[in-house]
Write a protein that binds this DNA or RNA. Sequence first.
DNA 1: TCACCTACTTAGCATGAAGCAG
DNA 2: CTGCTTCATGCTAAGTAGGTGA
Length: 656
Amino acid sequence: DSHKHKDKYKDKEHKHKDHKKDKEREKSKYSNRYDVTVIHSYGRYIGADSSSSDLFGDMVQITNALVLALCTAVLVACVGMLVYILPSLCFFIPFRWEEERYTDGVKWKFLEHKGPVFAPPYEPLPSNVKFYYDGKHMKLSPGAEEVATFFAKMLDHEYTTKDVFRKNFFKDWRKEMTSEEKSKLADLNKCDFSEMSEYFKAQSEARKAMTKEEKLKIKEENERILQEYGFCVMDNHKERIANFRIEPPGLFRGRGDHPKMGMLKRRIRPEDIIINCSKDSKHPKPPPGTKWKEVRHDNKVTWLVSWTENIQGSIKYIMLNPSSRIKGEKDWQKYEMARRLKKCVDRIRAQYREDWKSKEMRIRQRAVALYFIDKLALRAGNEKEEGETADTVGCCSLRVEHLTLHQEMDGQEYVVEFDFLGKDSIRYYNKVPVEKRVFKNLQLFMEDKEPEDDLFDRLNTSILNKHLQELMDGLTAKVFRTYNASITLQQQLNELTTSEDNVPAKILSYNRANRAVAILCNHQRAPPKTFEKSMQNLQTKIDAKKEQLADAKRELKSAKADAKVRRDEKSKKAVESKKKAVQRIEEQLMKLEVQATDREENKQIALGTSKLNYLDPRISVAWCKKLGVPIEKIYNKTQREKFAWAIDMAEKDYEF
DNA sequence: TCACCTACTTAGCATGAAGCAG
DNA sequence: CTGCTTCATGCTAAGTAGGTGA
């Protein structure tokens, strides 16, 4: 606690300094606003493994060289002091950033951007593209025609045949019709969109067949828009915006069995848009002749633009790219939270095991749910409004019908069979042996209930998270997923990789470790449409390579024989080069075989989600450094940008 | 406690660009 | 250079979680 006090004392000092710096910033803001580095070092922001984060963070922001030099001197002194008390401080440091730099949830001090890019206006169809009703040509009003084209574009998709989709679509389409159209067009089945559909197909073909110059022109135009609208300035940093384009109108297609599929997603106009930026910034201008719904200056949030979507009535946002400071820091904090859980997970596990025996039903339910979340990495499972979305569940919203209890199964005792649709209507199917106590509790929870009744009728995510909050500050259900994913990766990497392996073998091991996590988190994908074919192609390549290897070996043999007879330099050299050739081909073959294994094992599993959202990147960075694997083999360009902070700060001995 | 609202992360898929063999 | 495959990226839906006020 005394350290905490010291820390706070320091904070005050820093704030005072900050104030001066603010003034400096104020002065230089207009002249220097764009004169800032895009790439910033997270090592500095977040601290050389979490010390002195804010101090250095400020340093980056100051463009004035003199101030910078002065600060450096002060900082060196401060860092010296910090290092002295560092060991005991470590626990607090991850959260110092928020506490010190921006108190009370302030997310930024300055924010300037150009606003969103709107969807291009509707271009009416050429008059030769006709729509037919009941076999007769009918010219549609522009409003009705636009919505009709949305349907026409989807004609090849299976869901345009679904009843719900067609019903929702037709209902919303009618709203856009003139009264004349409304009275004529009574039956969707009599509508013929095929000419429209053909027209769009032809257009997409034409796009593909464009000349290089035309394609280049489009690319340049996109680049121009990106440069103009794709960046903002947040606290003296030019940052990339994630989604600066407004979602175009179209037909809503939810995932799974969605009750609202086929509804019209309406066009967003400037009048729907709320702009968020700082007061002292140059405000984005609405398109000529239009107005924003509102311009606000809320620095307690991170979004730049928002609007309300008409399908669910939810709010959509324009926010920054994952490479931005604000997202990177949040990401880092997420993993620090998971690491804190690592320190007390044993205690928490002991606690919930104890709670299985509680005399209170709500505590038993809470404990069993937490056990599932921990052991199976299930999602929390918030309640959902019935009929508004697809029927999916998470842990707390599991129903009796989603699990089957087996006293004994395949030689194992107390097996629970899970079968339910989770997020994105992805099926979770798993047979898990559980402890007897859990099994007995489940029997109790399911007693006298209908299949559609809640399994945990005395529990919801809010209750669970309140309990977790008491066990560890800041703990919520989703932290378990992050924790278990990351710890699994680390363990698997330790188990699977050896430094003697070559790089392709190491990468296979990495992917296998990654795969173990993806399986744990149930990250599935539809097998790629071209999967079988691409497997075959790979096999053909392998066969060819094998033949090539046999040839090379034969040649080596004869070269050896030749060298034995001749005993001259030239033939010796020939043997050497043949040897090298064999080696090279062996390596190539092995690479191909590894690739085939990897791909086969990956058929229905998506690695990207866990890599991007659950695995502490510092584990991967450290692994790469330790085993001499180039980071590019693990992370592509985007991923390296997102994880710049980790690449910067993790050393080879980093431990999650 | 509940309904509702807001802000933010996590998710799979379609598309288009890049890469590669022939 | 072409045509095909593979991969990265964009898109946006669908979650989590916390707040508010009745």
